[in-house]
Design a protein around this nucleic acid. Structure first.
Lengths: 149, 149
DNA sequence: TTGATTCCCATAAAATCCCATGCTATACCA
DNA sequence: TGGTATAGCATGGGATTTTATGGGAATCAA
């Protein structure tokens, strides 16, 4: 999936890029979005994926554990269904937009079975950071001679 | 399922958020609420889920244990049905409101197949606590650069 | 009767739907 | 090859419907 920039209008509406939509549409007509735990962006996925995550949590821990309690609170307390209409738009909430610092434009970034929505400038920086990180950790990928330390 | 803040009026009435309602409505027009065992909040779910919870408790513990007895007594002794009217409101009892320290506003927090109702300030603190806790226990989730050396 | 609880209606605000428009990429034809 | 028609998409604006919430009437209980 490509990274795509779409406008966010005054009502908070964004078109879900059609590539993203068509993948989901086989299953349903809605996605689930929540604030990323680790980055200033929105994450989106299908409800199936979220259900699976919940089931994994339930199975991997003691049923009455504090940790499980915390995780389900965090995930389901934040996640919300976003049905998209016939023109393919969803309406993001204030909470999500604020977390991702999105005002009038949003970048969709594919991440396998989920995707992220970023403020365009933030994504630019993040992408640069990721590139630098990858090159640092895997120098064999870098076909340029290593001049700098 | 999101977290949603609604007002509690002088009669103790609260609107059950429509997202919550629509999920339940397929089955019935009422929910079951009880005081959380572990937190200063109200828990709510369908009657079906409560039955399942009871079965889980029985399976996960010695059938004759004092512990199981205590747990089932606590939960079922407390649980009460709350039908919601045509406008989607329920009327919470003094006992529940007091336990959750709720006066004039209540936040609904989704929790998978059940949900919790909190005093807004208490939830804010709880959410912060959970986020910190989860990030601490799962450092691999934390992609923030490690500045300290 | 009095106090409390339940039901019903009214309203404002917010969420949702629908249609119109312009753009872009692709296909098709000369 | 170049030019044009076409279909799909993103986007804007307005109309419609839902939802939350307040107040009051009706019902029930003590």
């Amino acid at each position: 999936m490509d990274t795509i920039v779409n406008k966010v209008d005054a009502k908070g509406r964004v078109s879900l890029p059609s590539d993203y939509r068509s993948i989901i549409k086989e299953l349903s007509t809605e996605i689930v979005c929540y604030r990323s735990l680790t980055a200033p962006c929105i994450e989106g996925c299908t409800e199936e994926l979220l259900d699976k995550l919940a089931a994994d949590i339930e199975n991997s821990m003691d049923f009455f554990s504090q940790e499980q309690d915390d995780l389900t609170n965090l995930i389901f307390g934040d996640a919300k269904r976003f049905p998209f209409d016939s023109t393919g738009r969803i309406v993001l909430t204030e909470k999500l937009l604020k977390h991702a610092q999105i005002t009038d434009a949003a970048v969709f970034v594919g991440k396998g079975r989920k995707f992220q929505i970023w403020n365009p400038e933030n994504w630019e920086k993040e992408e640069a950071r990721i590139r630098a990180e990858v090159l640092k950790n895997r120098p064999q990928l870098n076909r340029q001679p290593q001049e700098a330390k």
